Amino acid sequence: MEESQQILDETVLPEEIQRYRVVYEKAKEANQITDENKFSFAYCLVRSKAKADVRHGLTLLRELYDSTKSDDAKRDYIYYLALGNARLNEYETALNFLDAILHLQPGNHQAKNLKEEVTRRMTREGYVGMGIAVGAGALLVGGGGGLLLVGGLTAAALALLKK
């Protein structure tokens, strides 16, 4: 749990963000953006103190998610989407992403720990009731074994991870 608390509280200095921004922008100008440099910049942004940076990081992570065919990469992107949303106090969205991971990988300790920390913060900040109900009700299993997940990107994430 301490690790999840630390990752949610960890921030990146503006100078480090700027360094990654320069690398990303140069790659973009040269039309040589790789998933690696895009992810490095996005991961840096979601750990920023500035909400606008976190939102930009989430946009980059969504783009990465949409462009990859790797299930492992998709799972990682979903995890960091959950992290970024939790950092924005968008706990219900974070829980939906974490539930998508845990549905497919019930033993994923990283996702379990982050979910526990998000739930703890929701309780501490007074989101109990609405948020827990949304998180718990996010996954709906259909009769044919199919899965329906509430939320656009989360539904797509689960469907693609399930393949």
Rank of each mutant, 00 (worst) to 15 (best):
A27H: 10
V141A: 09
I78Q: 03
F39D: 00
E15D: 14
L83E: 01
L148K: 13
A52R: 14
G145R: 13
A73P: 00
N113R: 08
N85D: 13
Q5H: 07
P14F: 11
R47K: 13
I33A: 02
G143D: 12
I7N: 01
A50F: 13
E29G: 07
L88D: 05
L139F: 09
K49C: 07
Y127F: 15
A50W: 06
L8P: 00
E29T: 07
L95S: 09
E36D: 14
Q32D: 09
I101A: 04
R62L: 12
N113Q: 13
A52G: 08
N89P: 02
L149P: 01
Y24P: 01
Q18S: 15
L64H: 03
L83I: 10
A138P: 02
Y79N: 06
V134K: 04
G57L: 03
V12A: 05
L58F: 08
T123Y: 08
H56T: 12
I17V: 13
V54L: 04
D53F: 11
A133S: 15
G151A: 05
H103C: 09
V150T: 12
Y43N: 08
Y20S: 04
E63L: 07
E15Y: 11
G57V: 06
A27K: 04
A82E: 00
G107L: 11
R19L: 11
M130H: 05
M130V: 07
V141T: 15
Q32Y: 07
D99R: 05
Y127S: 06
Y127H: 14
N113S: 14
Q32N: 10
Q5G: 10
A100E: 00
E15L: 13
G142L: 15
A133F: 14
P14L: 15
A136Y: 09
G144F: 15
G137W: 08
Y65Q: 04
E125D: 14
E63F: 01
I17F: 03
Y91C: 02
V54K: 03
G57S: 12
H109C: 11
D76H: 10
D76E: 14
N31F: 11
P14E: 13
L60K: 05
V134Q: 05
D71N: 11
E92S: 12
D99V: 04
E16I: 12
Y20I: 01
H103A: 12
L60A: 07
E10C: 14
L140G: 05
M122E: 02
V128H: 08
V141D: 13
E90Q: 15
N31Y: 08
S70Y: 06
A133I: 10
G142D: 11
R121I: 08
Y65H: 15
S40A: 15
I33P: 03
A50Q: 15
L13S: 14
L114D: 05
G137K: 08
L98I: 14
I7W: 01
I101S: 00
T34F: 07
P106S: 14
R87I: 03
E117L: 01
Y24G: 04
G143R: 09
A73C: 09
A50D: 15
C44T: 10
I7Q: 02
A82F: 02
R21N: 10
I101C: 00
F41P: 00
G57D: 06
I101F: 06
N113Y: 11
L149K: 10
E29S: 11
K38P: 00
T59D: 09
D66Q: 09
T123G: 08
A138S: 09
L81Y: 00
D76T: 09
T123M: 11
R120W: 07
G135Q: 00
L61Y: 01
L149H: 05
L88G: 04
L102N: 04
